[in-house]
Amino acid sequence: MADSPEEIQKSIRKYLWIGALLILFTIITVALSYVELPTHSLNILVGMIVATFKAALVALIFMHLNHERPLIYKVLAFTTVFALALFMLFIFTSGDPLVFEGF
C-alpha cells in the first residue's frame, strides 16, 4: 500500500527533489529557446520534448500516476487516444497527399 504513513514519509523528500528538477528544466527550456537550432521547428520539437518530460514528472510523481489503479489508466488511455485524434485536426488544412495520375 503506497499510501501508508511510512511511504508518505519517504516520498516527502522525493517531492522536493522533483520540484527542484522542474525548476531546473524550466531554466533549460528558456535557455534552449534562445539557441538557434537548424530550423525553428526543431526548437519547437526540443521545447515540447522538455515540456512533456516535465509534465510526465508532475503526472507521475505529484499526481501519483506511477502507482495508480488500473481503472484510472484505462480511462486515461482512452482519453489520450481521442486527444491525439483531436490533435490531428491541423492535418486537414494541408494539401491532399493522395494524387491520382490517371487510371
Binding site: 524550466t26 527550456t29 528558456v30 529557446s33 526548437n43 515540456a51 509534465a55
Partner: peptide, 10 residues
C-alpha cells in the same frame, strides 16, 4: 508547463 514554452518562448 505546455503553455509557457508554446506562447512565450517558441
Amino acid at each position: 508547463i505546455f503553455l509557457f514554452p508554446l506562447l512565450y518562448l517558441l
